[in-house]
Amino acid sequence: MQHAIGKLIVLTGPSGAGKGTLLKALLAEHPELYVSISATTRSPRPGEVHGQHYFFLERAEFDQMVADGNLLEWAEFAGNCYGTPRQPVAEQIAAGKTVILEIELEGARQVRASFPEAYRIFILPPSFDELENRLRGRGTESDEVISRRMTRAKDEIAAANEFDIQIVNDQVERAVQELATIVFPVDTPVPTSV
């Protein structure tokens, strides 16, 4: 009997679209999913654990992974590097697991080049106004940061058609159900003639 091969799902969308919320709800329903852990050169924040939240690496270690082709995707933000280690993802897929990457647009584009069979999902906010309300509702960022995020979101949303499917996160329960249907398609039985 041949072992089932898993699949790679890429989840992308602008900050505030609700990617993390949808993924958390999907994981609550489907704990068998494997969420890829990113590598980063930034320092751990209080409570973050190496190998659980991120793989915390020195810059030289990260640069070596890039040079060796050991990252599916990577980018640099605010002086720190972030990337998806290739080996754990490949091992989980080989074991028949469904692997989800929650990453930014540029990373998703890199995955399309390095792992073209990945299924790519773009999470959209219901509107720009709602996106801004969500960002402001967090209460964690200045007006300047929110303004930059909104400008970036316009560019990201313009790229939504590069993805296999778009999900509008207007109601969390509905959006999670739509996401679950895509990640875990149910084979419809073929009617038989009598």
Score class of each variant (00 low, 15 high):
121 I>Y: 03
115 F>M: 12
76 E>I: 11
103 I>M: 00
109 R>W: 10
116 P>Y: 03
115 F>V: 08
148 R>L: 12
126 P>M: 09
131 L>A: 07
132 E>H: 00
119 Y>K: 04
102 E>W: 01
86 R>S: 07
87 Q>C: 07
82 Y>D: 07
111 V>Y: 03
139 G>K: 12
86 R>G: 06
97 K>D: 07
109 R>S: 01
142 S>D: 07
90 A>P: 03
94 A>I: 13
96 G>C: 09
96 G>S: 06
125 P>Y: 06
134 R>N: 01
90 A>E: 15
133 N>Y: 03
99 V>F: 05
97 K>Q: 08
91 E>M: 09
120 R>P: 00
105 L>M: 15
144 E>D: 15
119 Y>I: 06
112 R>V: 00
121 I>P: 02
145 V>S: 12
128 F>C: 00
105 L>A: 06
137 G>Q: 14
112 R>E: 01
105 L>E: 14
90 A>C: 10
101 L>A: 09
102 E>Q: 03
123 I>C: 02
89 V>H: 04
78 A>M: 13
100 I>P: 02
124 L>K: 04
146 I>W: 00
104 E>H: 10
140 T>H: 12
96 G>P: 06
83 G>L: 02
148 R>G: 00
132 E>Q: 07
140 T>D: 10
95 A>H: 13
100 I>V: 14
88 P>A: 03
95 A>S: 15
141 E>W: 11
111 V>R: 02
147 S>E: 15
138 R>D: 11
108 A>C: 10
105 L>Q: 05
119 Y>R: 12
111 V>E: 00
88 P>S: 11
128 F>E: 10
87 Q>G: 07
137 G>C: 09
81 C>N: 03
82 Y>A: 10
143 D>L: 12
140 T>G: 05
91 E>W: 10
131 L>H: 00
117 E>R: 13
115 F>L: 14
96 G>T: 05
92 Q>V: 02
101 L>I: 15
128 F>D: 01
118 A>Q: 08
129 D>W: 00
139 G>S: 09
112 R>P: 00
92 Q>W: 02
111 V>F: 08
109 R>Y: 04
80 N>A: 15
104 E>F: 00
116 P>A: 00
111 V>D: 06
123 I>M: 03
139 G>M: 14
117 E>C: 11
105 L>S: 06
91 E>L: 14
84 T>G: 03
93 I>R: 03
130 E>M: 05
142 S>G: 14
143 D>A: 15
77 F>L: 13
82 Y>E: 13
132 E>W: 01
105 L>N: 04
124 L>M: 07
141 E>K: 10
132 E>P: 02
104 E>C: 00
104 E>S: 15
147 S>Y: 11
99 V>G: 01
126 P>C: 11
90 A>G: 05
115 F>P: 02
124 L>V: 11
122 F>C: 08
101 L>G: 02
95 A>P: 07
95 A>M: 08
138 R>T: 09
133 N>K: 10
99 V>S: 03
98 T>A: 10
130 E>A: 11
130 E>R: 05
132 E>S: 02
130 E>V: 13
147 S>N: 13
77 F>T: 14
78 A>S: 14
85 P>C: 08
120 R>A: 14
103 I>A: 04
77 F>M: 09
96 G>Y: 12
101 L>S: 04
121 I>Q: 01
85 P>H: 04
77 F>Q: 14
135 L>I: 11
145 V>L: 11
110 Q>P: 08
120 R>H: 15
92 Q>T: 03
144 E>C: 10
123 I>T: 05
140 T>C: 05
